[in-house]
Amino acid sequence: MFRAIIDNLKGLWSLLVGLSITGRFFLSPQRTTHYPRQVDDPECLASYRGPLELVPADDEGRSRCVSCQMCVKACPGHCLTVVKGDQGKAPKTYLYDFTLCCLCAACVESCPAGAIRFSHRVYLVATSREALHLDLLADLKSRAAKEAR
């Protein structure tokens, strides 16, 4: 009898504790972001695996790629197309079909030159499939141009 009363009083106290916790949460700042108006801190995106991008070799937008085709062979989804250029080892085209990519990182691991990596483009959207067929060399050039500015 007394035990039941004490148990119930303890239960009542725990209800008050619960109310105080939600009350504190009610007053504390929110943890979500209003996406179109706010974007996440780049720090939070450091481990995000976005579509592939080429690692720049220098400031002029040249790639480290040696056109060895290791990534093309390693890719289980056949989403990469690499064509060797006429002069030297540098590639002429480096096409990447993001619609087929499963972000498995087989290409990144197989690359002997360390020329590809995952980008942190979390806000990438497209309205057609063609928009997701990315030209990574052009992308590299435009990034270098942007940085130069």
Binding site: F25, F26, S28, P29, Q30, R31, T32
Partner: peptide
């Protein structure tokens, strides 16, 4: 709104 604030999100916005 109260539900949102308690769950630390903005609610209808």
């Amino acid at each position: 709104k109260a539900c949102g604030f308690i769950q630390r999100r903005p609610g209808p916005y």
